[in-house]
Each structure stands twice: as C-alpha cells, then as structure tokens.
Simulated scan of single mutants.
Amino acid sequence: MHVVEHETAKKRFLIRDNGSIAAVMTYVISSPELYIIDHTFVENAYRGQGLGDKLIEAMVEYARENGIKILPLCPFAKGRFERLSEYADVLNK
C-alpha cells in the first residue's frame, strides 16, 4: 500500500516506494486560505496505479481539515477537479 506523505516545508505531497519518490504533487501557498496545485508527476514505472489520484485525495482532505480552497493549475489536477464533483467544496471558484 502506498502512503501519502505531506512535507509542509517543501510544499508537496508525495508517495515513496523503497525510499525513492514514486509520485509527487507540489503546491504554492497564495494565501492562508488558498493553495495552488502547480505540478503533479508520477514516475513512469508507477503510472496507471492511481498514485496521482491519491495525492489529490490527500490534499483535498488536508484542505477540508484546514479551511483551505484549492486552485488546480496543473493539467492533471485541473482535470480531476473538473470531473469529480465531490471536490467542489474545496475548489476555488
């Protein structure tokens, strides 16, 4: 099972496999209430396993717990937010 880590100092969510980063999603803090997802990357060997979705789910959960809205600028995240209405509560409109 892949565990999502949140490295607040580096402003990223990531998943490791045997010590190496398998997937990472970075964000920028625009304000205390608005985070911008600017990049999502999954290593080739891990693509198709839903790791990008796990990163987004972790950030959505973090946003809900902390009263934050998300602006997904990264194409992958933007697509997920457009397709999944369950994320509408944290989407910056």
Results as ranks from 00 to 15, higher is better:
M1T: 15
H2G: 09
V4H: 03
V4D: 01
E5G: 05
E7D: 11
T8F: 10
T8P: 11
A9V: 12
A9F: 13
K11V: 01
K11H: 08
K11W: 03
F13T: 04
L14C: 11
I15R: 08
I15K: 09
R16M: 09
D17T: 13
D17N: 15
A22E: 11
A23S: 01
A23D: 00
A23P: 00
V24F: 02
M25G: 06
V28Y: 09
S30G: 00
S31P: 13
E33C: 12
E33A: 11
E33M: 07
L34T: 02
L34Y: 02
L34A: 02
L34V: 03
Y35F: 06
Y35R: 01
I36D: 03
I37F: 01
I37N: 01
I37V: 05
D38G: 14
D38F: 14
D38A: 14
H39R: 11
H39Y: 12
T40V: 10
F41E: 04
F41Y: 04
F41C: 00
F41V: 02
V42Q: 14
N44V: 13
N44Y: 12
A45T: 12
Y46W: 07
R47E: 08
G48Q: 05
G50K: 08
L51R: 08
D53L: 11
K54F: 13
L55G: 01
L55H: 02
L55C: 01
E57M: 14
E57K: 14
A58Y: 00
M59H: 10
V60F: 14
E61H: 12
E61M: 11
Y62S: 10
Y62F: 14
A63K: 03
A63D: 06
R64K: 11
R64W: 05
R64M: 07
R64E: 09
E65T: 10
E65N: 11
N66G: 12
G67H: 12
I68D: 02
K69L: 00
K69F: 00
I70V: 15
L71K: 00
P72D: 13
P72S: 14
P72E: 10
P72C: 13
P75I: 15
P75V: 15
F76R: 07
A77G: 15
A77I: 14
K78L: 15
K78T: 14
G79L: 10
G79C: 09
R80A: 12
F81Y: 05
E82F: 07
E82A: 09
R83M: 12
L84E: 09
L84F: 07
S85Q: 05
S85L: 03
S85R: 05
A88R: 07
D89Y: 07
D89S: 10
D89M: 05
D89K: 06
V90I: 04
L91Y: 05
L91S: 04
N92G: 01
N92E: 03
N92S: 09
K93S: 06
K93L: 06
